[in-house]
């Protein structure tokens, strides 16, 4: 029997809560998160376990790492895996959430938004330049621009949707805050 599995993600900007819930369901069935894998997660077979998962986005300097992970450990959160600036933690159900206040969870989304927006802006700029060439140039240049435009358009649309996804979550958080009398 295979003891490794892959779980896909449609992108953390959209499905963070959903992904974390799904990881927790998998763990209850004995499939445990081990590592990030391309556009998803690598799971391994083990004993069923009641666990909750949380993700944080943070650029850590080398000398900040220990302090950061130590704080989570003290708060009851075990570090599972990291990829670039994303860090996933697990804990027993009912553990205090890693973000206990709205202000700092909005800060978290703002950190996520930075690289996402940069990527989306670059993609959009390239698409626009190619559109100009496609429309106003002629001959080979126009032909190349046309092809390039199709590809960059395919990249730009999901990139902008991801940006939108992050802002949607930020807006949801702000609404939550205003409801919190």
């Amino acid at each position: 029997m295979r003891n490794k599995r892959y779980m896909a993600s449609i992108g953390l900007a959209f499905s963070e809560v959903h992904d974390m819930k799904k990881l927790s369901e998998k763990a209850a069935n004995g499939w445990h998160l081990k590592r990030f894998r391309f556009a998803g997660y690598g799971l391994e077979k083990g004993e069923p376990e009641e666990t909750i998962f949380s993700i944080d986005y943070r650029k850590l300097r080398k000398d900040d790492e220990e302090e950061y992970f130590e704080l989570f450990a003290y708060g009851g959160w075990t570090h599972v895996c990291s990829s670039a600036d994303m860090h996933i933690f697990k804990a027993a159900p009912e553990t205090t959430p890693i973000y206990s206040d709205t202000e700092s969870s909005i800060d978290k989304l703002a950190r996520l938004a930075k690289p996402v927006n940069l990527a989306a802006s670059i993609a959009l700029a390239i698409t626009m330049v190619l559109w100009v060439f496609m429309t106003f140039a002629s001959g080979t240049i126009q032909h190349i621009a046309e092809q390039g435009f199709t590809y960059s358009f395919i990249i730009t649309v999901p990139a902008m949707m991801t940006s939108g996804g992050v802002y949607y979550h930020m807006w949801k958080n702000l609404r939550l805050k205003s409801k919190h009398i």
Partner: peptide, 14 residues
């Protein structure tokens, strides 16, 4: 009142 580790870390940095 409890402060989660990610909130605490964010606030300390700030």
């Amino acid at each position: 009142f409890v402060v989660g580790p990610a909130s605490l870390y964010t606030i300390i940095k700030k």
